[in-house]
């Protein structure tokens, strides 16, 4: 074995070693979450806290389901409706902005995009009062509206970038055949949109599921999504960690599943957030 080969092997070993170390560090929190969720409270004491549970115990999960179950249902209703609506809206906006000339587009587009970076605290108090005034405060419909509206920038951006790749010639050909605005959308653009929809739906699904800010300001106990009771219990120094970790798993599972199954699209949505698609 030459010195060069040895150095090479050492280097590869170093790379893999570092990667594995990092991977372990990244997984420690999840390991702790998973083992704690299946433990009894006494087993979370110092001596056994890092061990695997001696036997699978579902008390924590039962308590978590009792505590977070209804809000988890709320989360699903919210996410499904809001995601579908905002994807549809985003698709239409993207289509218009990429394929049709809109007066003042150079000004309008950045103004739309800015909404993506808006610190929502800057609109919360008026939003809260407005939702009151229109009678939508406190319920899931109101929260859906809010997520749809503040989802417009990112969904529009993703679809606009996606449709920009559809060659204009295809639309021109359609126009020659006498297709109008709607026909071009339903016959040319929409059938090509599936990947775009997947990216947007995944993105909105995780964003809305994970949202806490709007949820805590705009819902009441009966309509709150799962992040609210979880955050309130956690910030309130709840000590029943098997229950808390079970709750965290429940709240983490849906977006995590989406991520694991369709990670590639998830990353595309992620990178779209940096504006240049």
């Amino acid at each position: 074995m030459t010195a060069y080969e040895m150095r090479r092997i050492a280097m590869r070993g170093g790379i893999y070693g570092t990667l594995v170390l990092f991977a372990l560090i990244f997984l420690i929190p999840i390991y702790m979450t998973a083992v704690t969720a299946f433990k009894t409270l006494p087993e979370t004491r110092l001596s056994t806290v890092w061990n695997l549970p001696t036997q699978l115990n579902f008390t924590g999960f039962e308590q978590a389901i009792e505590r977070f179950g209804p809000s988890m249902g709320n989360s699903f209703t919210l996410v499904i409706v809001a995601t579908i609506v905002s994807a549809a809206l985003g698709s239409m906006n993207g289509y218009v902005l990429s394929k049709w000339r809109i007066p003042g587009e150079r000004v309008i587009f950045p103004l739309i995009l800015f909404g993506m970076f808006l610190p929502y605290q800057a609109i919360l108090i008026p939003l809260f009062r407005f939702m009151n005034d229109i009678g939508l405060y406190g319920g899931i419909p109101g929260l859906i509206l809010v997520h749809v509206v503040y989802g417009i920038p990112i969904t529009t951006l993703i679809f606009r970038n996606f449709y920009a790749e559809i060659p204009d010639e295809m639309l021109e050909a359609g126009t020659m055949d006498g297709a109008g605005f709607w026909q071009l959308y339903t016959q040319v653009v929409f059938p090509l949109s599936v990947p775009g929809f997947v990216v947007v739906i995944i993105w909105q699904f995780t964003q809305i599921w994970n949202d806490f800010l709007f949820a805590i300001f705009l819902t009441t106990e009966s309509s709150q999504p799962i992040t609210v009771p979880l955050a309130i219990l956690s910030g309130g120094r709840e000590q029943n960690f098997p229950m808390m970790m079970s709750g965290a798993l429940l709240a983490a599972l849906p977006p995590l599943l989406v991520y694991i199954v369709m990670g590639r699209y998830f990353i595309r949505g992620l990178l779209a957030g940096s504006v240049k698609g």
């Binding site: 809260f128 009062r129 009771p229 309130i232 219990l233 309130g236 120094r237 709840e238």
Partner: peptide
């Protein structure tokens, strides 16, 4: 939840104002 109502009061306020 929240000892001495630390969280409840904020939630109550949103509801009353709402």
């Amino acid at each position: 939840t929240g000892g001495s109502g630390v969280n409840a009061r904020a939630v109550l306020k949103t509801r009353m104002l709402g």
